[in-house]
């Protein structure tokens, strides 16, 4: 498999088209939610114009809280859109700590220039994005949704208490 094919795997291209969680409306994306346990973040890559507004909602699960869902509105390349779609699917039901760990591991993987192997148990489908790490110019594309999720999670946890 060429490096290009390793980056644009079938799974990635399918996510880029189906876009799980891409159901936040343009109106919702321009207004900040004022609810406890909900966070929202807008991220823009000024180099290419890729853009995402991501809303993360927590729900109570016993004494803990878990991610009820990630919904987003965005436009960009196959990598940024697939990455947001995969993240949306992966995050559902995760505890804030688990999602935090996922984001941390993903960031390390992306910054590794291809030296790190992805941990499939932590990353699930996001492991398929490992090929992006060999293209430093594209790492920001893959990270866009994850950076937004990190900030939205921080807000959701802060207001959820």
């Amino acid at each position: 498999m060429s490096a290009l094919d390793a980056m644009y795997q079938q799974l990635i291209l399918e996510h880029a088209k189906s876009r799980s969680g891409a159901d936040l409306t343009a109106d919702e994306a321009t207004s900040m939610p004022d609810q406890p346990g909900v966070g929202q973040c807008h991220q823009l890559n000024p180099v290419c114009g890729d853009e995402i507004t991501l809303r993360l909602e927590l729900e109570a699960a016993g004494s803990q809280s878990t991610v009820k869902g990630i919904h987003w509105h965005g436009d960009g390349c196959a990598i940024s859109m697939a990455s947001a779609s995969i993240l949306s699917e992966l995050s559902e039901g995760a505890s804030p700590d688990e999602l935090g760990e996922m984001i941390g591991h993903f960031r390390e993987l992306m910054r590794s220039r291809g030296r790190l192997e992805p941990d499939d148990e932590i990353l699930g489908d996001a492991a398929a994005l490992a090929g992006v790490a060999k293209y430093p110019a594209r790492v920001k594309c893959a990270m866009l949704a994850w950076v937004a999720a990190e900030d939205a999670l921080r807000q959701a946890v802060a207001t959820g208490r």
């Binding site: 290009l4 980056m7 196959a78 293209y135 594209r138 594309c141």
Partner: peptide, 13 residues
């Protein structure tokens, strides 16, 4: 249907 960044990546390959 294809973002410019993806087009550029293909051409670079």
């Amino acid at each position: 249907g294809v973002h410019a960044h993806d087009v550029g990546q293909y051409l670079d390959s």
